[in-house]
């Protein structure tokens, strides 16, 4: 089981790739999934492998909050950051209540993200 720092679940493939590449340049290992189902499959096949999960809300197959619920079922300890361009306040409240650690609006500030990651890493250890 290979260990990675961040699992990105986002249907915007180009965004996910680009974010992944940028994080890689900063020494962060990433894996990107482009829909809810493949993301969940990856988590199931690699339990506890990701330090942090970045989850988009608007996914083509399953809505983000549902994915969040499944993730929390599989691994309640993994920090999940919601990252969205569509989030409403209701979504934010719902996600935070369901165990999401952060609710981040697009566009994302990369430095802010790495800081949060380091923080999460520290907690995870």
């Amino acid at each position: 089981m290979k260990h990675i720092d961040i699992l990105i679940i986002d249907d915007e493939t180009k965004f996910a790739d680009m974010l992944g590449r940028r994080l890689s340049l900063r020494g962060v290992t990433c894996h990107a999934c482009y829909d809810g189902q493949s993301g969940l499959d990856w988590i199931r096949s690699n339990p506890g492998a990701a330090t942090l999960i970045l989850l988009d809300l608007k996914l083509p197959d399953i809505y983000g909050t549902q994915v969040l619920a499944y993730i929390k079922e599989i691994d309640p300890a993994v920090p999940v950051f919601i990252i969205t361009g569509h989030g409403t306040r209701e979504d934010e409240t719902a996600c935070l209540a369901m165990g999401a650690s952060e609710f981040i609006h697009k566009p994302v500030n990369i430095d802010q993200l790495t800081t949060l990651l380091n923080h999460a890493r520290g907690e995870r250890k």
């Binding site: 915007e12 180009k14 965004f15 680009m18 974010l19 940028r22 361009g85 569509h86 609006h105 697009k106 566009p107 994302v108």
Partner: peptide, 11 residues
Amino acid sequence: INNPLALINET
């Protein structure tokens, strides 16, 4: 706009 904006940002 947020999604394309995010893409521009990342690119």
